[in-house]
Design a protein around this nucleic acid. Sequence first.
DNA 1: CCCCAGGCCGCGC
DNA 2: GCGCGGCATGGG
Length: 222
Amino acid sequence: MRSLRLELPELYRILYDHYGPQGWWPVDDQYHRKNGSDPREEIVIGAVLTQNTSWKNVAKALENLKKNSLLSFRAIIDLPLQTLEELIKPSGYYRLKAKRLKEVCKALIPVEKVASISRDELLSIRGIGPETADAILLYAGNRPFFVIDAYTARIMERAFGISGGYEELRSYFENNLPQEVELFKEFHALLDRHAKQHCRKKPLCDGCPLTEACRSAPVLSL
DNA sequence: CCCCAGGCCGCGC
DNA sequence: GCGCGGCATGGG
């Protein structure tokens, strides 16, 4: 963990200046006002549904739940398994995720728990691994846990030669940034955005804001 | 046709 | 403790 050509706060600044605020985590506040539900429940549910799945597909599943006023822990717990499966089908792995959702909702009701539950306790819930746990802690619980995902790992490895397992990367971020929840939220979202826009599996280096700092950037020929 | 997407679990080694 | 297959839909 030594070859970073810029400090994390600088990396954040470059991405933020280039892409602007990303508006994570997206929630439908209007829906929750109308239904008297808690937007944090939507974050937890979305965090489970988005496991290895594009957000577009997740949005369809969330929309199906909203249409029927079922986007809440209580509704999901009370819903027959098969009905839940049909509603979330667009998000993929729908049989697996229907079971996971029920377990997670049961374990986290009332949703105020996200403010106090320990990371280890979250990890002991079936269907919650490290990334989902940290997403819940950060975006629903407003607590300073940095979310690592495949995008983050790819950017750090490719651009800066920083590789490591989940926990290694997480402590790297948490130890080299001010412990500010809003910074953690925005930084993770920006890394996601950057991976989609430029740092894809097949990198699109044209117009990349990190070219100057990136060790894998193509050499400019005159 | 292929590959990929905001992972996790259970298994074998 | 690490690697691998399974899980599934929708979009490029």
